[in-house]
Design a binder for these strands. Structure first.
Lengths: 347, 347
DNA sequence: TTGTAAGCGTTATCAC
DNA sequence: GTGATAACGCTTACAA
């Protein structure tokens, strides 16, 4: 079907080897032969079979990227950033949606290995991803964790300074007058969840507020989880005056439940969260958030991985930490009328 | 490094061929040998090298997926849907972000071919994608266009019924009292742009409103394009009473510009668009839109492609058309107080 | 500067 | 039911 190096070689009156050299821009080919070969390549519309070269050179020029959900407005820019950086480095990206499912994630990992990716970018489901990821590390497969670390797994990673950002957000809530601050937390199995919970505690501690286990709510960190937990919070005997949601989707669910219950934000209860919900800020600059540079996180992750693949990286594991940005809007009870259009999100 | 079929064969005391048969679940292996081989596979932690099998079988089990931007809240669910359906069909997905750049898209196409993808899912930059896509069609490479068709290119596609939906949205605007309706259109080079413009004209025509070229504004269909065009609209001598934005990002830009200019929606001007801006509806159920089933579109596209690859599809090209859904909210001047929380998006 | 030979890990084919 | 052999298209290693 498609032309091969040998076809090109025949047409140019040279050996396959010389064609290979030209295709891979290797030195040691006379300008004349090079030109002849280039013409033959053009004539035959030859495109090298990367599968075949991958077989001999053991280099597939491909990375694997595993995220829980590409359509999540936090992960989507990560994917974009990673793909862009990979492309600029001459790599292709196999995209995998783990749906936060451990089994699925594990299958993806072995599948990607079967496809001989040269390295993996993984936003792991949680600490229980360790067994299958540890195997990779042992085998020396280049890997970079994105957004989340895995307890007990030593490898490159890029994350947000979750603990510090959570502390900052908590301090902000305290500063504007809240003392009973509910935390809608992620499982402790997930490093971001752990770190944010820990930051929340630090924030309270600094303010001299005692940590109250009853104010910590755990749920599936998606919209429906947030929705359910908000209803639970509203039923609790000692209602908090503020809610700190661990991420974007959870916050959306909480918001929805509060609105349906006729609870005014921030008058009846304040709401803050991690992740700036994409594009939302344009129409309703409302939620006070910790914004994460997701695009940068993805791009940097890919760069780290490429460096490790190329061997530039050195033995030591690198843990890049990015800073979150506290963006104060209206949902916590200050700044209510400074935004362009103050929508009154009340009943 | 990793074990090969031959390693497994040696350990099980059989030939490589028999191992291959077991791995690929082919019949014609006695239960006893099969069991022996399976144990050897487990012992050696053998995983078949898909690169190598791809070389012999010419089947890479991989699809290419090209979209303008994964992080766009319309394309992200398409990607998710496509990847999921591909995985369930036993395929991997190479993700490519064309950034609506023709050159980049073209490079991706040849690169994907070099990687021997078995088929392509493409949301093309526009009609000018035809040359490089036509080559694929000629060569018999399975391909499915997603979201956009390409003029003069015969192949499978899945799109929205853009014309009809645009007509419906226009009719709605007319119904609630608008007669001077600006269209912020996409280039005619893009099928969705063409079809939506055409539907807009039909809608006007049905209402007996004469089409006015001066009410059609062209721009880059992203947020900044929308932003600029809105400023232009506000400066125009005969201001429209409503704006129909061709897509989500454009609408966001328009919204931003209107707000900054202190123009009230819908009191001073109405706004409607294609694409439900993801998650936005939860916090601010405000924009009247044509919602598209993006996830379904992606999944169906992948299914179509897999059917074509497997040969189930038949010679004829299939053009699947999905229906859009008009969701009436507040931004066009009716329904203003029926939503849960009516934010007054006014100055 | 160029070419030869061998083999990457798998599978198609045909023989036993 | 099982195996030997020869590819697949390319590149590494070495030779000329």
């Amino acid at each position: 079907m498609s032309a091969t190096v040998r076809d090109v070689a025949k047409r140019a009156g040279v050996s396959a080897m010389t064609v290979s050299r030209v295709v891979n821009k290797q030195p040691g080919v006379s300008p004349k032969t090079r030109e002849r070969i280039e013409r033959a390549i053009a004539d035959l519309d030859f495109a090298p079979n990367r599968i075949a070269s991958g077989l001999t050179s053991a280099k597939s020029q491909t990375l694997g990227l595993i995220v829980p959900d590409v359509a999540n407005p936090f992960f989507a820019p990560i994917v974009r950033g990673a793909e862009g950086a990979a492309r600029r480095g001459g790599y292709r990206v196999l995209l995998c949606n783990s749906e936060s499912d451990l089994r699925l994630e594990q299958n993806y990992v072995s599948d990607l290995l079967s496809h001989r990716v040269e390295g993996l970018l993984v936003a792991p489901a949680g600490d229980r991803s360790r067994p299958h990821l540890a195997k990779l590390v042992e085998r020396g497969v280049p890997i970079v964790l994105v957004d989340r670390r895995v307890a007990g797994l030593d490898c490159d990673s890029i994350t947000l300074d979750n603990q510090n950002s959570a502390r900052e957000l908590t301090s902000h809530l305290v500063r504007v007058g809240h003392r009973r601050i509910a935390l809608v937390a992620d499982a402790d199995d997930v490093s971001t969840g752990r770190d944010r919970t820990s930051g929340y505690r630090s924030g309270l501690e600094e303010a001299g507020i005692e940590f109250d286990e009853d104010l910590v709510f755990r749920t599936s960190t998606d919209q429906s989880g947030g929705y359910r937990v908000a209803q639970q919070i509203l039923r609790s005997s000692q209602k908090p005056t503020a809610i700190f949601a661990v991420n974007n989707m959870t916050a959306l669910g909480i918001f929805q439940a509060l609105r349906e219950a006729g609870v005014a934000i921030p008058d009846d209860i304040a709401l803050a969260c991690f992740d700036d919900v994409l594009h939302l800020a344009v129409i309703a600059p409302f939620l006070t958030v910790i914004a994460q540079p997701a695009d940068l996180m993805g791009a940097t992750a890919a760069q780290l991985l490429l460096e490790r693949i190329s061997g530039v990286a050195g033995r030591q594991h690198r843990q890049v930490v990015l800073q979150g940005e506290l963006i104060v809007r209206e949902s916590c009870g200050v700044n209510r009328f400074t935004a362009g259009a103050p929508p009154s999100h009340t009943k």
